[in-house]
């Protein structure tokens, strides 16, 4: 596999312009919700609200104020994390989801049959159906562009370089420096999310610089693989199956006893044929 590529998103220089969101839709020719005719959300300037099958990028707006003019306005451009251990890939029953030579996670739309297991499997709520395609869709990390040596459309469009694309190892180093700079400037809450290869999911190939708790940005504190539940779940089921089996046999046994004990309640059990 070639070098692992991905994103470092420095949310502290995101101006919420949504150029990334539009660039993604443009390059991937994704439709707008209801053709763009819809109601505003009233949730700050965020009117697309979530990542889903037709929003592969999403810019979140978080207003943290106490009293007029007194606070801060966080913005963050979210996307598929291209997890090193990807829950979506793990469960996909058709093999539609693959890991590419760039260590990114891609759904092959022509293979996907829309069973939607991946949607529930992703710890970040990244995937959803694309109603037009009838398949589950998400960020491909512009696989088609990477293959021809182009930068992803979103990071290319980002005017402030809040979204930085490159080899993960380089990005991690850069990110570390930025965190230290922010800490030096007194932003004690500055932290990286998903940069640790020994951390959750073996690290995220799209990781973030945050200045508050992950939950504030809609990110789980400790994302996990869905199969963590498999062993226990399976064992308990098997166990209960065994219990029921026993109960059934015990029942039969008891009946025989009763019958041998002659003329138990109910007719003699002579079967019609």
């Amino acid at each position: 596999m070639a070098e692992a590529m991905g994103f470092f998103t420095d949310t502290t220089i995101c101006i919420g312009c949504k150029a990334c969101e539009v660039a993604c839709k443009n390059w991937n020719q994704l439709p707008a919700e209801h053709g763009g005719v819809k109601e505003m959300s009233g949730d700050s300037y965020d009117n697309t609200q979530r990542l889903d099958g037709i929003h592969w990028r999403h810019v979140r707006f978080i207003e943290q104020f106490d009293g007029p003019y007194n606070g801060r306005w966080l913005m963050m451009s979210d996307v598929c994390k291209h997890c090193v251990q990807a829950g979506c890939l793990e469960v996909c029953p058709t093999g539609a989801i693959i890991r590419t030579q760039f260590d990114t996670v891609v759904i092959q739309s022509d293979v996907c049959n829309g069973c939607r297991a991946c949607i529930a499997a992703c710890p970040f709520g990244v995937i959803d159906m694309n109603p037009a395609a009838g398949t589950a869709q998400k960020c491909t990390l512009c696989y088609d562009r990477l293959e021809v040596g182009l930068e992803p459309a979103c990071s290319k469009a980002c005017p402030t370089d809040s979204i930085q694309f490159g080899p993960i190892t380089e990005l991690r180093a850069r990110a570390q420096k930025r965190v230290e700079q922010l800490k030096a400037q007194g932003e004690t809450r500055a932290q990286l999310y998903g940069d640790d290869p020994n951390g959750p999911l073996g690290g995220l190939n799209s990781f973030y610089l945050l200045v508050d708790k992950p939950e504030v940005y809609g990110l789980p504190k400790n994302p996990q693989l869905p199969t963590r539940n498999l062993p226990k779940s399976a064992t308990f089921s098997a166990a209960s199956a065994a219990v029921l089996g026993l109960l059934a046999l015990v029942g039969l046994r008891k009946q025989r006893m009763d019958d041998m004990g002659g003329g138990g309640a109910g007719g003699g059990g002579v079967s019609p044929n």
Binding site: G87, V91, A117, A120, A121, C122, P123, P223, Q224, P226, T227, N229, L230, K232, S233, A234, F236, S237, A239, S240, A241, L244
Partner: peptide, 24 residues
């Protein structure tokens, strides 16, 4: 039930007993 537990959804993935429950 196990299928539901092997996700990251609330309730489903928060208990290992769903498979057993559905089975019973």
């Amino acid at each position: 039930g196990v299928l539901l537990s092997v996700t990251n959804r609330p309730i489903w993935a928060d208990s290992p007993w769903l498979g057993a429950l559905f089975l019973v």
